[in-house]
Amino acid sequence: MSTRPHIVLPWTVRRTRLPLLALRCVDCRSGLASTGDGKFRVNANGKLLDVWLLVACVSCDRTSKITVHDRVPVRYVDPILLEGYFGNSSALVARVLLDPLIARRNRFALEWDSCWELLAPSPPESPWPVQVSVIFDDPVPLRPERLIAQGLGISRGEIARRVKIDIPLNRRTHRDFSFVLL
């Protein structure tokens, strides 16, 4: 590497909207669902509480439920969370959707296509090399190769020649990383 100091450019990956859910509809067999308005359903049976997030099929608009809490004693649920469930808090909807444990338990994945944006200043014409620091505001899984191509407007072949990076270019990541553009 060069001994010259690098110019450090900050790039930020930000979620623009909630992702769709890859979840099979029982009526039309479509594979995508949306949270729509982000509504919770809370049901109390005695001192036990059930909480679901309602999602709708994007094709037929059939409503399905994502289990958030199942038969949990009311005293174990944080009162602030409970108030958020009753108030259909949009921040709580995002928190539930992005929780990997809830996704695994309910067997859905998130479809991040067209749900994110890259905030990146244009690279300077000179001097080279330039170090770019990529920061993820939300856990958007992206291939670094795609992100770099979009941010710099260069081809994958040129990325292989001009980019020095410590992580695999073709494996998805949602963790912060940095690279050097030669």
Rank of each mutant, 00 (worst) to 15 (best):
Val132His: 01
Ala109His: 08
Leu21Trp: 02
Glu117Phe: 02
Leu152Trp: 09
Val180Tyr: 03
Asn106Cys: 08
Asp166Ile: 01
Tyr76Asp: 15
Val74Trp: 10
Gly151Ser: 04
Phe136Leu: 03
Ser64Asp: 09
Leu49Phe: 04
Val140Leu: 09
Leu181Gln: 00
Val42Phe: 07
Gly153Ser: 09
Cys57Arg: 03
Pro127Trp: 08
Ser2Asp: 14
Leu18Asp: 08
Asp137Val: 08
Leu48Val: 04
Pro121Thr: 05
His69Ile: 07
Leu119Trp: 11
Ala160Thr: 05
Trp112Leu: 04
Asp27Val: 11
Pro144Tyr: 04
Leu54Met: 14
Arg162Ala: 01
Ala120Lys: 07
Val132Pro: 02
Met1Thr: 03
Gly84Arg: 15
Val51Met: 04
Ile66Ala: 03
Ala103Pro: 06
Arg175Tyr: 06
Ala44Trp: 12
Asp176Leu: 06
Thr173Ala: 06
Asp37Ala: 06
Tyr85Glu: 06
Trp128Thr: 12
Leu82Arg: 15
Pro121Glu: 10
Trp116His: 13
Thr67Tyr: 05
Leu147Thr: 01
Val13Arg: 02
Arg175Gln: 12
Arg172Ile: 13
Pro19Asp: 10
Asp113Cys: 06
Glu125Arg: 14
Ser155Pro: 00
Gly87Asp: 15
Arg143Tyr: 07
Pro168Thr: 07
Leu98Ala: 10
Arg14Cys: 09
Asp61Glu: 15
Cys60Thr: 07
Ser122Cys: 09
Ile135Gly: 02
Ser126Asn: 11
Trp11Phe: 14
Asp99Asn: 15
Pro139Ile: 09
Asn88Cys: 04
Gly87His: 09
Tyr85Lys: 03
Arg175Ala: 12
His174Ser: 13
Trp128Phe: 13
Leu49Lys: 01
Thr67Asn: 08
Ala120Met: 09
Arg75Pro: 11
Pro129Glu: 06
Gly38Met: 00
Glu111Leu: 14
Ser2Tyr: 11
Ala56Cys: 10
Asp78Ser: 14
Thr12Tyr: 08
Asn106His: 07
Val68Tyr: 02
Gly36Cys: 03
Arg156Ile: 10
Cys115Asp: 08
